[in-house]
Amino acid sequence: MSGRNARRGRRPLHLMRTAAVLVLLDTLAQAALAGLFVTGDLDLLTWHSANADALAALTLTQAAAALLVRWRQGGPLWPVGASVLLTVLVGAQQALGQARILAGHLPLGMAIFGLATALTYWTWTFTPTAADARMATVEVTE
């Protein structure tokens, strides 16, 4: 594989890494905004709500990137499922927050952070092999 093709072949994993890091950082930002809101800065609730929309978009991007890693680089299937689950959980988190159901909103936020951390860790430890990429190609062409 030429240098250009090798770089192109790694793009899905680079996209997944970038998306996973952004999701994790945005999840941390959500916790910080919530904590500052609780201290009495009511304007931060608006920021917290707007940032939830950004987090939802980021999780969709991550799910798409996980699918590309699976198809193009022969990555495992579980990160795709975990990324889709994360997207669903963020949607549920938004609904709970809008309904002011904090008894569900706060623990779900911790679960989202844990799943985002696991996915970010995986993206930095996964190394696709040439055999994985060949298997992905065979699966798509059959």
Rank of each mutant, 00 (worst) to 15 (best):
T87K: 08
T59S: 01
A82V: 04
A95D: 06
S49G: 12
L42F: 12
S49Y: 13
A52D: 08
A56I: 14
L45G: 07
Q94E: 06
L22I: 08
S49P: 08
L86E: 00
R72G: 13
G74E: 02
Q93H: 02
A34R: 14
A20I: 05
G91F: 00
A54N: 13
V38K: 09
D41K: 07
L15E: 15
A64E: 15
Q93M: 01
F37Q: 08
R70N: 10
A54L: 15
G81L: 06
R70M: 10
G9D: 14
D53N: 06
R11W: 02
L33N: 14
L102P: 01
F37T: 12
R17I: 02
W47D: 09
H14L: 11
A66P: 04
A52S: 15
V21N: 08
Q98P: 13
R70K: 14
Q73R: 01
A31C: 09
R100C: 11
Q62E: 05
G75P: 02
L85S: 06
L33S: 10
Q73D: 02
V38T: 14
T59D: 03
G74H: 04
T27L: 02
Q98S: 05
R72P: 10
L15T: 15
P79W: 01
R72S: 11
H48R: 06
L60C: 14
Q73P: 01
R70Q: 11
A65P: 04
P79M: 00
L13C: 02
G40P: 11
F37P: 06
L58D: 05
T87R: 10
W47T: 10
A82G: 04
N51E: 14
P79T: 01
T27Q: 10
T18P: 05
L28V: 08
L60M: 14
W78V: 07
L67F: 08
A34F: 15
A34Y: 09
Q98M: 14
G35H: 07
L42S: 05
S83K: 00
F37Y: 15
R11I: 09
V90S: 00
L85W: 03
Q30C: 05
A82S: 05
A103L: 05
A82W: 04
G40L: 10
V90R: 03
D53R: 07
W78E: 05
L24H: 03
A29F: 13
L55G: 02
L58E: 12
L77A: 05
A34S: 05
L28Q: 14
R8K: 09
D43S: 13
G81Q: 05
A103F: 11
Q73I: 02
Q93I: 02
P12H: 11
A57D: 12
V38R: 11
H14D: 11
V69W: 04
P76N: 03
M16N: 09
R10G: 04
V21A: 13
T87C: 12
A29C: 12
D43L: 11
L86P: 00
L24G: 04
S49C: 08
P76E: 01
A63L: 07
L85D: 01
A20T: 11
A34G: 15
A57Q: 13
L58A: 15
V69A: 08
V84P: 01
W71G: 11
G9F: 11
L33H: 15
